[in-house]
């Protein structure tokens, strides 16, 4: 389905440093509307760094390269504007914020995005109706709404809460950083349904994952392997199965591809 669809994200020759270390070393990646890409790769290879730099995480220094999002220089935008413009990062480790009410954050985020799009804000009553529907889809208990953001949520509840936020905010570019890790089998299916529901010809989805199992539910258009700070190999759905069998060693830079 690639080819004529609009480019949502274009990363070119990206070099990123975190602390003293060069983490991304000339990474390039292009994603078009309607596509789902999976990014796999060994621990510490820079997958979260890539997701973070796209969302605007502080502490990551871009040394070289460019990132274009819907034709605009993404790196020049502050994080909150990226979010309002439709970039959504589902965190690998969702942050607990005791004292900030979960439903309050959902509503504030939702209205910030709506304002940006020039759409009317919803009042408290309408919003609650909307959020309750999403909660049911995610099979989340209503009392999670009135807790602090992610406060005391189980690992799986945190991941579902990320997908709940995503489905409320309807991003153009969703970055899911290991949203499948730590989920039980039912939760994996629910989360996958949430992702599939978002799948549409106008959106793009990037899923960072270690397990091909998620890809059974959300079938990607492309699978990439990130190692040594760049995409070292790309392929279709079957690449994930091959990685599961063979591991990453055969793809490491300097190793001849089989």
């Amino acid at each position: 389905m690639s080819g004529e669809n609009a480019v949502i994200l274009s990363v070119r020759g990206l070099k990123v440093r975190a602390g003293p270390r060069l983490i991304l070393d000339g990474l390039s990646l292009e994603i078009r509307a309607g596509e789902v890409h999976a990014i796999m790769g060994p621990n510490g290879s820079g997958k979260s760094t890539l997701a973070g730099v796209l969302a605007g995480r502080p502490g990551l220094e871009v040394l070289e390269g460019s990132v274009t999002y819907l034709g605009e220089d993404l790196l020049a935008m502050p994080p909150e504007l990226r979010a309002r413009a439709g970039v959504f990062l589902a965190f690998q480790y969702p942050v607990e914020i005791p004292g900030v009410n979960n439903v309050y954050l959902l509503k504030a985020a939702f209205n910030a995005v709506r304002r940006h799009r020039g759409e009317p804000e919803l009042d408290a009553f309408e919003f609650l109706g909307l959020v309750r529907g999403k909660l049911r889809q995610m099979q989340m208990s209503e009392d999670l709404l009135n807790r602090g953001v992610n406060e005391g949520f189980s690992g799986g509840e945190k991941k579902r809460n990320e997908i709940l936020q995503m489905s409320l905010l309807e991003p153009k570019l969703a970055l899911l950083d290991e949203t499948d890790s730590g989920l039980d089998i039912d939760a994996l299916r629910i989360v996958a349904e949430g992702v599939n529901a978002l799948r549409s010809p106008e959106r793009a989805i990037v899923m960072v994952t270690h397990y091909q199992r998620l890809l059974d539910y959300v079938v990607p258009d492309q699978v990439h392997v990130l190692a040594g700070g760049r995409i070292v190999h790309s392929g279709g759905r079957e690449l994930a199965l091959e990685l599961e069998r063979r591991g990453y060693d055969w793809l490491r830079p300097g190793t001849a591809a089989a």
Binding site: A55, P78, E80, A83, R84, L89, V95, A108, H116
Partner: peptide, 17 residues
């Protein structure tokens, strides 16, 4: 906490808010 701060920004919340 910078992680909490970034989490809020990443949801479209303005820095002062």
């Amino acid at each position: 906490d910078p992680n909490q701060f970034f989490y809020l920004l990443s949801r479209g919340i303005a820095p002062d808010a």
